[in-house]
Design a protein around this nucleic acid. Sequence first.
DNA 1: TGTCCTTTGCAAAACGTTTTGCTTGTTGTG
DNA 2: CACAACAAGCAAAACGTTTTGCAAAGGACA
Lengths: 340, 340
Amino acid sequence: MATKIGIREVAKAAGVSVTTVSHALNDATSSRVNPQTQQHVRAVAKDLGYAPNRLASGLRNQRSQILGLVSDEITTTPFAGAMIRGAQDAAYERGYVLMVVNSGRDLELEHREIRTLQQHQVDGIVYARMYHQGVSLPEELGTLPTVLLDAVTVDRSISSVVPDEVTAAETAVEALVKAGHTRIGMLGNGDDIPATHGRLQGFRNALARHGLRFHSELVTAGVADTQGGREAALELLRRPERPTGLFCFSDRVAMGAYQAAAALGLRIPEDVSIVGTDNLELIAAALWPGLTTVALPHYEMGRWAVTRLLDDIEGPETAAVQEKFSCPLIERGSVGPPPD
Amino acid sequence: MATKIGIREVAKAAGVSVTTVSHALNDATSSRVNPQTQQHVRAVAKDLGYAPNRLASGLRNQRSQILGLVSDEITTTPFAGAMIRGAQDAAYERGYVLMVVNSGRDLELEHREIRTLQQHQVDGIVYARMYHQGVSLPEELGTLPTVLLDAVTVDRSISSVVPDEVTAAETAVEALVKAGHTRIGMLGNGDDIPATHGRLQGFRNALARHGLRFHSELVTAGVADTQGGREAALELLRRPERPTGLFCFSDRVAMGAYQAAAALGLRIPEDVSIVGTDNLELIAAALWPGLTTVALPHYEMGRWAVTRLLDDIEGPETAAVQEKFSCPLIERGSVGPPPD
DNA sequence: TGTCCTTTGCAAAACGTTTTGCTTGTTGTG
DNA sequence: CACAACAAGCAAAACGTTTTGCAAAGGACA
């Protein structure tokens, strides 16, 4: 209530100058102020509930303590939530706060949003994508510290973090192999992005490593959503020599595979085993039986991106890092031994 | 590159004083500056790519052009995404930007986060919940303009926006009634929140309006997730006098009902019709057949909250408003006439 | 006793804007 | 022609901090 209390009010109440208050509050072990005075000032400040105006200190310090997070999509997937929360947590722990903007793939809008962030003097930017893909960085970022989240550029001079798609797929497929499956199908996305290439590569790696042949007719590309997954799985599971295990590009696709299995009277996991990708709680835990899937560590990636960004901002210059996060297998109930 | 260009650089380049630049850029139809000069200054400013430092102007104007959005959960549900996007869009259109924080129900953390927002001098706060519920506002908000999003307080002096739970449920149930169903069950949440009470009320209203009796044994409370929905639906659908239509508290619960129907060999919608609540794309559009459901207008509510907040901030004082948004029925394929 | 540090504190400048007077011409009017 | 009114622009103050340079007060030492 009353008047907003600023550093001046504290100074007056403590009977010292504004300068001394500032020193008492900021310099951890200050040589400019008597420990007793310091303690006293701090007590008074706390008492009054003083908190510095960050607009003012930002202006003075050329440090806003704000990070920008620009992403393409925030709406459709809950991945966004996990990544952003990871980023927020990491930022908060170090005294920063996030300004999130999302462009919905509108490049023109994205430009304007980035300019807005720059007007607010953000100290750095996390440039995020909802799916692991290649991007080209907007020009206007200029020399502003930037880290890529779930995306990569050809320019290796900027740090990035992505899931390790190859080993993620290997992990998923090996879960099937270890359960005894030898005819394994894949329902894959067709887009020309690292996620697609990496997972197909991992699929092949896992088969090769265990001496299994790669049957290209068991791989379906261009499967993007549940409906696509259902149709593709129907086609695969109707074959006389049907696969007994299915590796799905995403949990949404896996949900389609569940539907196909049900339509054909195949039980999971007794008749067909299914592994997904994403560990989307909303789906993976809701399916029945629960979906065994590899988790994309969105929360952790969000944390890493911000931590790295803050290290860049606050610390000395270091070489850029291209980080890959491994994807653990989350076992629920959709994998079992193949039927006889 | 070079040096950061500020208003001073523009002034120098345009051959006028800093004052004149400010007037030329800000006063739409300025009496302080010659239209020619104004045009010239603007051209120069654009040419140099000048954009004002909002830390500085915020400090001077006592207006940060930042809004805080504090929410409990951002992770688990995609609702958050829609609400936040609506809020962001509305804010952006009026030159504001959002600072989002989420407390994960940790009250202590929430307090600290709000204080942080206040340090950044946010011009107002949207206090959001992910489910329609009653809340008590944190003390420290004080006189800061605030709007509630998907939440209400006993204190009617503060504006809020929530879904109209009662008519939402009525809409859902009437879809079943109009298809010819007379024995309708409800899988409801048990929590003591407006969402629960409102929807149960709507359920009863719809029945009464069409001369149908309310059978309390067809109503199951405390059903929160897919597994709960499955179990509750199994129980209901196994009855000799089973309901032919089910109204579900959420789409997640409805997904459980789908599973129960499948387990019992009941087809949707031939043997049993199902209506959900939420219109959660990820689930409603993915289920097979598609789930008919009432949409909670999260995006629109997010927009409304920010628009209202900005009107409060920028405009003259007006009386608080308690807004209820209606929830349209989204028809997919899960409702049909009852069997024989 | 005078000189020189050291300690403790303060005044003032700076960060980049916006806005309030004030000054200087210029035009219109009696 | 003189004077008022007005148009156009500028200098300076202010927003709330942080930090640099300086001053005063003591204490140690010669």
